[in-house]
Simulated scan of single mutants.
Amino acid sequence: MNREEFEKIIADKGWTPLLLGQRWSLSDRRIRMIKAELSEAKPYYKDAVRGLHKLSSSPDESEITRYSGFTAKQLRAVYEKKGWDIDSISERWGFAGKSGLYAFISRNPSLASDAIHGLPEKDSASAGDEFENNTMSVLRAIFEAKGWKADELATRWGYQSVTTLYGFFRRNPAMATDAVNGLPEYQHDE
């Protein structure tokens, strides 16, 4: 998804940056930054935009916050119906594991709910998603075989989080492959 597609989906569903920020508990400035830097944005924002409900021409507060109170069981039913499990969602969105995803869901339930509703059918994911998932899996297998964990690798390369490390992998798969292949074996402190 590029910036134009992102903006079109938002507009077609009746949302503005201000309303979207209100729903996701983000400033409209932050929404504009996400749009401007979409290739750098966390992957769940793209899914969340796809999962937004359509607004009426003059939405009130209840319409803006609609569908934000799903229970964990209800959300699980949504993602399982699409063929996803918690581990594959964590991987898609760049979280180091389940605990990171659960923290995200508890911090921002509206954004998480929209993102879960916007997940594509897993078995019909686009070739780009398949390529990305395969590349991510290969890169992870390489650095794990050398004894590295994602958070250790992020720290070594100066990334603030595993999510930003995975963002680098997604944006630069060839460079990431070269870098991961060039890693030394991890020397654990004993």
Results as ranks from 00 to 15, higher is better:
Arg3Pro: 00
Glu5Thr: 12
Phe6Lys: 04
Glu7Ser: 12
Lys8Asn: 13
Lys8Arg: 13
Ile9Cys: 08
Ile10Lys: 14
Ile10Asp: 03
Lys13His: 09
Gly14Ala: 11
Gly14Asn: 08
Leu18Thr: 12
Leu19Val: 01
Leu19Asp: 01
Gly21Thr: 02
Gln22Trp: 00
Leu26Phe: 02
Leu26Lys: 02
Leu26Ala: 04
Ser27Asn: 00
Ser27Ala: 05
Asp28Val: 05
Asp28Asn: 08
Arg29Asp: 07
Met33Cys: 07
Met33Trp: 03
Met33Ala: 08
Ile34Gln: 02
Lys35Gly: 13
Ala36Phe: 00
Ala36Lys: 11
Ser39Met: 10
Ser39Thr: 11
Glu40Asn: 11
Lys42Arg: 13
Lys42Cys: 06
Pro43Tyr: 07
Lys46Thr: 15
Asp47Tyr: 11
Ala48Asp: 02
His53Gln: 13
Lys54Leu: 14
Ser56Ala: 13
Ser56Ile: 10
Ser57Asn: 14
Ser58Trp: 06
Asp60Ala: 12
Asp60His: 09
Glu61Lys: 15
Glu61Met: 15
Ile64Gln: 01
Thr65Pro: 01
Tyr67Val: 01
Tyr67Gln: 10
Tyr67Cys: 10
Ser68Val: 01
Ser68Met: 02
Phe70Asp: 10
Thr71Asn: 04
Thr71Met: 04
Lys73Gln: 15
Lys73Trp: 11
Leu75Glu: 09
Leu75Tyr: 06
Tyr79Met: 06
Lys82Met: 05
Lys82Gln: 04
Gly83Val: 10
Trp84Pro: 09
Trp84Glu: 08
Asp87Gly: 15
Ser88Pro: 09
Ser88Asp: 15
Ile89Asp: 06
Ile89Gly: 10
Glu91Thr: 15
Phe95Cys: 07
Ala96Leu: 11
Ala96Cys: 11
Ala96Met: 08
Lys98His: 13
Lys98Pro: 03
Ser99Phe: 04
Leu101Gln: 06
Tyr102Phe: 09
Phe104Tyr: 10
Phe104Trp: 09
Ser106Arg: 11
Arg107Lys: 05
Arg107Gly: 03
Pro109Trp: 02
Pro109Tyr: 05
Ser110Tyr: 00
Leu111Phe: 00
Ser113Met: 02
Ser113Tyr: 01
Asp114Thr: 04
Ala115Val: 02
Ala115Ile: 00
Pro120Gln: 03
Glu121Gly: 00
Lys122Ile: 05
Asp123Tyr: 03
Ala125Gly: 07
Ser126Cys: 06
Ser126Ala: 06
Ala127Lys: 09
Asp129Met: 10
Phe131Asn: 07
Asn133Glu: 13
Asn134Thr: 10
Met136Cys: 05
Met136Gln: 10
Ser137Ala: 12
Val138Ile: 12
Val138Gln: 07
Leu139Ala: 09
Arg140Lys: 13
Arg140Met: 12
Phe143Cys: 03
Phe143Lys: 00
Ala145Val: 06
Lys146Thr: 04
Lys149His: 11
Asp151Arg: 10
Glu152Lys: 07
Glu152Met: 08
Leu153Asn: 03
Arg156Ile: 07
Arg156Ala: 14
Trp157Gln: 04
Gly158Met: 00
Tyr159Glu: 01
Gln160Thr: 15
Thr163Val: 12
Phe168Met: 07
Phe169Gln: 03
Arg170Phe: 04
Arg171Tyr: 02
Arg171Phe: 03
Asn172Glu: 14
Asn172Pro: 02
Ala176Gln: 04
Thr177Ile: 05
Val180Arg: 03
Leu183Tyr: 08
Gln187Tyr: 09
Glu190His: 14
Glu190Met: 11
